[in-house]
């Protein structure tokens, strides 16, 4: 496809990228300058920026505590997702009676919105004694259907000849798993890590109902909480938005190399 000149592609992509980035710019700008809700037109460039809104937020809420809680929950979710989805994904590569029904079940489960399950889910969690705990917050997200299929596809793509050859050479099974299967599914693992991280990091309604203790609140709850306190103080609100977004974006940007390859190059090219 290199026959075409590249500049029109760059132009189109640059415009589209700029459009995608505008909200990011706007939130950052407003967090540094505040926004007077009575002035028009809004200024496009930050005028006399300062970071005092961040200072205000820092002292208004226990940010570190929320961050810590969010991280714990996300770590549980991510680990559980990688392990459980890999297991389920592997099982689905096998033939067994009831396979079709299982896949159908998984797909149907995707169609049940979480919001409507709150009350029964709450009762069950309560029976398990997991209210107000990190595990309780993490459990509903501990296995996700999309990610199971990601693993399934990755496992299916591993050439069987490769493994048989290794076995004939007398390579022990555990080594096959760690030396051959895991490296080949690394992109799938990265995909799982990122997607499950995003979903748990942003989860809002479930923590809202099962967390009672102020010390157990996660960042999205803190954001909603904060929103109600400073409904009109846009500078501080946006500063908090930035503080909530930055950890997630850092993780994403650091892990995105594997992730993008994970989703795009596919397991075949591993």
């Amino acid at each position: 496809m290199s026959r075409y000149p590249h500049w029109p592609i760059h132009l189109a992509l640059s415009i589209a990228s700029a459009a995608m980035l505008v909200p990011f710019y706007w939130v950052l700008k407003t967090s540094l300058t505040g926004e007077n809700i009575f002035t028009f037109p809004p200024s496009l460039l930050p005028e006399s920026p300062h970071i005092f809104y961040y200072v205000d937020v820092w002292y208004a809420i226990p940010f570190l505590r929320y961050l810590f809680n969010s991280i714990i929950v996300s770590v549980i979710v991510v680990v559980a997702n990688v392990v459980l989805n890999a297991m389920a994904g592997y099982a689905l590569t096998r033939d067994f009676p009831g396979k079709g029904a299982t896949i159908l079940l998984f797909l149907s489960c995707m169609m049940i919105p979480f919001q409507v399950t709150i009350i029964p889910a709450y009762l069950i969690t309560s029976e398990m004694g997991l209210l107000n705990s990190y595990v309780g917050m993490a459990l509903p997200l501990a296995s996700t259907i999309v990610c199971i299929f990601v693993f399934k596809a990755a496992f299916e793509a591993i050439p069987k000849s490769l493994i048989d050859a290794a076995r004939i050479d007398g390579v022990p099974d555990w080594m096959i798993v760690f030396r051959i299967i895991l490296p080949l599914t690394k992109p799938a693992i990265a995909t799982n890590v990122i997607l499950s991280f995003i979903w748990s990091w942003n989860s809002f309604l479930w923590p809202l109902v099962i967390v009672r203790d102020a010390q157990m609140q996660t960042l999205p709850l803190g954001l909603a909480r904060f929103l109600s306190v400073v409904e009109d103080t846009t500078g501080a609100l946006y500063a908090f938005c930035v503080m909530v977004l930055v950890p997630g974006l850092i993780i994403f940007l650091l892990a995105q190399k594997e992730f993008i390859t994970g989703l795009t190059s596919g397991a075949t090219k591993g």
Binding site: P23, E35, F40, L223, Y238, L245, L249, F252, I260
Partner: peptide
């Protein structure tokens, strides 16, 4: 990366940001 970057953004924050982008006055 740029195109994917909006997906990890917390939905509550997306709402807050766009609420102001759509504001009638500012």
């Amino acid at each position: 990366t740029i195109f994917f970057m909006s997906y990890p953004v917390m939905t509550v924050a997306v709402g807050i940001i766009w609420q102001w982008l759509f504001n009638e006055n500012v």
